[in-house]
Nucleic acid binder design. Structure first.
Lengths: 142, 142
DNA sequence: GCGGTTTTGTTTGTATACAAACGGATGTTG
DNA sequence: CAACATCCGTTTGTATACAAACAAAACCGC
């Protein structure tokens, strides 16, 4: 009767959207406590570009789930810092061919241990089976 | 050997942070397909304010996991649309006392079914047991 | 009751995110 | 090959998010 959800039936702590936002916030805070010279988004984009070797801007955006406007801003900042280089694609005049620089690859390599520590700390409340389960459930949502 | 993670050991699709971002993106897209006159953040803030009845700006921010700068912007927009009213707190001159207007409560009531549909559609890939499990695991992360 | 600390709201600056619109290049199809 | 559609990168506008700094108000220890 004195339940706060009597009127609306809306209990915040049970909403998927809210729980996702909270978990993301905590993960972001942990990330920046381990890595202070790259944002999670920048790290993801740089890491994926290193895996791919080279990619057009939009293709990298698709690979990292960022739209055109977002990936442009991210790459602009990485390029300004000399971590990524860009050149027009010979075969397709529309495309901007992106390649990680040596500095970019080196920085990624130096930060990989901290990235793994970030994941570890984020998942610390869960045991191994629960971690696998969570990743599986999240993957099926996305 | 031809595994793309040979160099970095970094497989994007297994990173919690990436999966959280993807799931959040999908949830956001579903939300806006059901509700086009409130953002998820605005909905959360309005709903929580309706549950609380009244709250100071920072207190509402804490209740909805938004920092001071964020909750200010959200409330400014809700106030501009007449969904929330604000007045100085008599007992504490620092505080801004927020209260949902009738229009705010009415809009929330009209949008609650769509909000439930959003949750339902987001969790559609999972059965009942898996949904409960996911919410539990996410709650323990946050 | 007074001085140091905290709280509250605000502002500024940076960084995602996404929608919408655009011009240029490429692809497709009849 | 010409009309049409699609893709690419860019720009603009809006909306979270968070850090850092600030002034005013309230609190708290001694």
């Amino acid at each position: 009767m004195s339940d706060p959800d009597t009127e609306t039936g809306y209990v915040l702590d049970r909403q998927v959207g809210f729980l996702l936002r909270r978990a993301t916030q905590r993960h972001l805070a942990i990330f920046s406590s381990h890595i202070d010279d790259l944002t999670p988004t920048q790290f993801t984009a740089l890491a994926q570009l290193c895996v791919l070797g080279r990619a057009s801007q939009n293709a990298l955006g698709r690979a990292t789930a960022m739209d055109g406007a977002t990936i442009k801003g991210v790459m602009d900042r990485l390029r300004r810092r000399g971590l990524v280089s860009a050149a027009p694609d010979e075969d397709d005049q529309r495309r901007l061919l992106l390649v990680p620089t040596e500095a970019g690859r080196a920085l990624l390599a130096r930060r990989l241990p901290a990235a793994r520590a970030t994941t570890e700390e984020t998942l610390a409340p869960l045991d191994a089976a629960e971690r696998a389960l969570l990743l599986d459930l999240l993957a099926r949502l996305g």
